[in-house]
Amino acid sequence: MDLLNTEALKKYFGEVHAVDGVSLTLRDAELLSVVGPNGSGKTTLVNLISGALKPDSGKVYFEGRDITGIPPHKRVKMGIGRSFQIPAIYENLTTLDSLLVSIFSNTNLSHVFYKTKDKFEKAKEEAINLLETLNIPLKLVGELPHGQRKLLDVAMALSLKPKLILLDEPTAGISLDERDEVMQTIVGFIRNQKIAAIIVEHDMDIVAEYSDRVIVMHEGRVLKEGGKEILDDGEVRRILIGD
């Protein structure tokens, strides 16, 4: 069975056909890249799958179940995590606490009282491990440089132990020489944990290196779908370079 299916998803903003009939499938532990020029509907697609937006029509299935009407925080509990193009992070918390929020939420421990002390210690250990794996320092979030802010955003999604993670331009705004390292860290973790991922990405070298499959979006539609080789297709290049 496929992990994720979308069926003719549509989202219009007035005259703008942001997503215009997108159907896609994703298998367990598969890494799918979504590329396309600015405004082609990539973020909107991510929003539709994660539940941030409701589609005008079409359906989203997760593990065979129709989740189109399910609110975002419940989709998270089902195993869909996401990061944001502009990092959504807790400025006044520490990096450790940021991850703990996710872990507590995921294990239904966000109560007034700790169920048990060792559950808390376990959560803390888990959070610290993840921070170490992703090379994020123990710090106040407000003091992190941009690259690590993006990474923390991803880490908060990963700490939910999702089955599917949606990453919206995880390397945007990160300098060229750091990008590869960041992606290596993230993808390494995803592969290791057998998490499926949809990655929106602008950097074609990164797409070519890390994806199992690629879809190219243009004006809200899927223009092409296939292996990495479609990136060399003439029409695809024209559209991407015209960006």
Binding site: S50, A52, P72, H73, K74, V76, K77, G81, R82, F84, A88, I89, Y90, E91, N92, L93, D97, S98, L100, V101, S102, F104, S105, N106, L109, S110, H111, V112, Y114, D153, M156, A157, L160
Partner: peptide, 20 residues
């Protein structure tokens, strides 16, 4: 954890929602 969650919501409602 409850209090921490409140602070998280305060700082980023969006992120908190997508932390479930």
């Amino acid at each position: 954890p409850f209090g921490l969650t409140l602070q998280a919501i305060r700082d980023s409602e969006l992120r908190a929602r997508f932390a479930g």
